[in-house]
């Protein structure tokens, strides 16, 4: 384990996000004796069960009962413990939204929620098991921090960082079979601080989760076409890195957001709020699931279907580049 690191995995590029999460959590169990892991009959699916094998006395499987699980987690936090809860995102954000909001966020309790199978990553399961609403729901809860790691390594970093971050945290994990975008874990991850994956001046893509890999691929294709495209990994959707967004608007004046979420209420909406409030105009498109219940299919096919894969991003960037953006000499004086 490198100095200063709280976790390490070997062959991290061959593991899914959830597998890295399970491993990292079980390592953090040594560091945090008050860490209690909780699930609702999804120990193996979410990989939280790995912690349970190592620390059976600090592992609680409540059965298929998500609502009381989140209430119980609130009680455990009030008893001075550090609960980490995992189930599928659809159950956290939709079924148990009220327990997460009222029992945990309202009381500002130290509960960390790592939800897997988010977005349309469980594509073949259909919309009952998709969750394209969780970012909208979770970021509307006061006191909640919302993180969407780009890959397994970032998931490990986010989970480790969440342990030292006060109050409730929601970390969204997909099924994560995609290749990683980060090669090593020491790239300076910090909650609330966006990461510039590629510099660029013609347009900026602001992405989270699997959108980051697609954005990086799109930027490579666009580079070959002579375009300089910035790629920003906005892993923390709340609190959002306003400076990175405004800087991108100033430098490029063309913004595309990419997320595996309904385009209503998620990253794209959060970025739009910042831009509009900044008073700086720019060309803007949100890519994601276009306010519908996803069709069934393999995730990568669905990303393509909804045009937030690399091809779709390239297409949208092309549209934005064809727009006439009015030059404004007084730009710096505005807002």
């Amino acid at each position: 384990m490198a100095e200063g690191m709280t976790w390490s995995v070997t062959d991290g590029d061959k593991l899914t996000q959830a597998e890295i999460y399970g491993e990292v959590l079980s390592q953090l169990g040594d560091r945090y004796p008050d860490l209690v892991a909780i699930t609702a009959d999804l120990a193996s699916s979410t990989k939280i069960g790995r912690f349970g094998k190592k620390f059976p006395d600090r592992f609680i499987n409540v059965g298929i009962a998500e609502n009381s699980m989140f209430g119980m987690a609130a009680g455990l936090a009030q008893a001075g413990l550090r609960p980490v809860v995992s189930t599928f995102a659809a159950f956290t954000a939709l079924r148990s939204a009220e327990q997460v909001r009222t029992d945990i966020c309202y009381q500002n309790l130290n509960v960390k929620i790592i939800s897997t199978h988010a977005g349309i990553s469980f594509g073949q399961a259909g919309s009952t098991h998709h969750c394209t609403e969780d970012l909208a729901v979770m970021r509307s809860f006061a006191n909640m921090t919302v993180i969407v790691p780009a890959d397994g390594i970032e998931t490990g970093n986010a989970v480790a960082a969440a342990m030292e971050w006060p109050g409730p945290v929601y970390i969204r994990v997909g099924r994560g079979f995609e290749p990683p975008v980060n090669k090593t874990q020491d790239y300076g991850f910090a909650i609330g601080r966006a990461i510039t994956m590629r510099e660029g001046t013609d347009l900026a893509i602001i992405a989270c989760g699997v959108g980051v890999l697609q954005a990086v691929r799109a930027a490579e294709i666009l580079k070959a076409q002579g375009l300089s495209v910035r790629v920003i990994n906005m892993h923390t959707v709340k609190p959002i890195d306003r400076d990175a967004i405004i800087e991108a608007v100033k430098d490029t004046r063309r913004i595309v957001t990419v997320e595996e979420h309904n385009v209503v209420g998620g990253l794209g909406s959060a970025v739009a709020e910042v831009i509009v409030e900044s008073g700086r105009a720019c060309a803007f498109r949100r890519l994601g699931v276009p306010d519908c219940y996803s069709i069934v299919g393999y995730p990568e096919d669905l990303y393509h279907h909804y045009r937030f894969d690399a091809d779709g991003i390239v297409e949208t960037v092309g549209e934005l580049m064809r727009l006439e953006i009015e030059e404004d000499e007084d730009w710096e004086d505005e807002a």
Partner: peptide, 15 residues
């Protein structure tokens, strides 16, 4: 909501 929170506290007391 209360009983689930109470269950968490009771388990927490044990842990």
């Amino acid at each position: 909501h209360g009983l689930a929170i109470a269950v968490g506290l009771a388990i927490g007391a044990r842990l």
